[in-house]
Design a protein around this nucleic acid. Sequence first.
DNA 1: ATGTTTGTGTACCGATCTGTTAACTTTCGA
DNA 2: TCGAAAGTTAACAGATCGGTACACAAACAT
Lengths: 187, 187
Amino acid sequence: MRPNKRAELIRKSLDLFYRNGFHATGMDLVAAETGVSKTSIYKHFRSKEELILAVLQLRDEDFRGWLFQRLEELADTPRGQLEALFDALGEWFEQPGFQGCMFIKASAEYQAGEDPINMQSAGHKRLLQEHFAGLAAKAGAQEPAALARQLMILKEGAIVLAAMNHSPAPAGDGRQAALALIDLAIR
Amino acid sequence: MRPNKRAELIRKSLDLFYRNGFHATGMDLVAAETGVSKTSIYKHFRSKEELILAVLQLRDEDFRGWLFQRLEELADTPRGQLEALFDALGEWFEQPGFQGCMFIKASAEYQAGEDPINMQSAGHKRLLQEHFAGLAAKAGAQEPAALARQLMILKEGAIVLAAMNHSPAPAGDGRQAALALIDLAIR
DNA sequence: ATGTTTGTGTACCGATCTGTTAACTTTCGA
DNA sequence: TCGAAAGTTAACAGATCGGTACACAAACAT
């Protein structure tokens, strides 16, 4: 399979899983929507789980790449980038196809702690948290890790509520809370 | 069906859906685990969706009843009850079977805005938010609704991260953030 | 030109999905 | 005690699930 075709298969699968959920999306639908026969799919992915893991890896790279770049565009200081977090999230919430965080949904459907899908989802969150902790340290926070954990909590909560209520409003409330917490953590 | 038996069916179904997920739990398993024949189940619930809605209603009553009572036990002032929120959540996170918020998972699996399951999940969150807003108003917050929305974001984020990482730690971080936000909102 | 790899469509596998039909038991009030 | 209501088991629909077998067609390097 040409690398392009493989990448396209993963990306289209991502759209399907993101819109319909994982259990609710059958491999027949994946084959029909991607235009790749089920036989070929199973020649490159030993199971549906392996395809999901590839989808999550793409999502991880895409999302972190987008978010970190957007933060750099919005601010050029570490503190400024932390403060811009919920501005970027607000832009995401307003995108037409926004349906919440793919990793939250993945770990909700595959919630066993030792499940590879759950572990990969947790890994994504860990990478985000480490990035925020690095920014917090550069910004001079007294407890960078603690601030990063607080911002992560705000971020996940805002995503969940925005998705459930189909409203971008939680970005504004999260932003206000984040600014206050950042202000307290960095003097 | 005796009311007791019906209630038991719903409660056992709740456990199954909570542990395994909604799509991943078949009605055959529900019948086997509850001891109620599938024929009888479908005599009292027209579809799996109706059973899920009954389960969510029970969960809503149980959870709000438990949380609000626990807050009253932990503090006797409105502000104290808001401050005790993450102490109560921490207790929940440490319970053996904790697997996250049932409504977040329900709305993740049934994410269409007009889906009754999604609407019922959003209704549960709205009731919680209104309760917090009432407490915030009694506590003298300048913008009770805004504080309630911020606390909701913290709450959902802490639940999601505690479930994904199988750790009660987010309760402590959420508590610290909540105390700071409450202190800023109520002078 | 030829043989190998790679992908294709199609039909199929056994299992499971939600939901139903039918005949038989239990329960329980009149 | 009798008869309706409600529950039971068991088999069965029709569809879909994840995954595979097989025969065939295109692409490719040699």
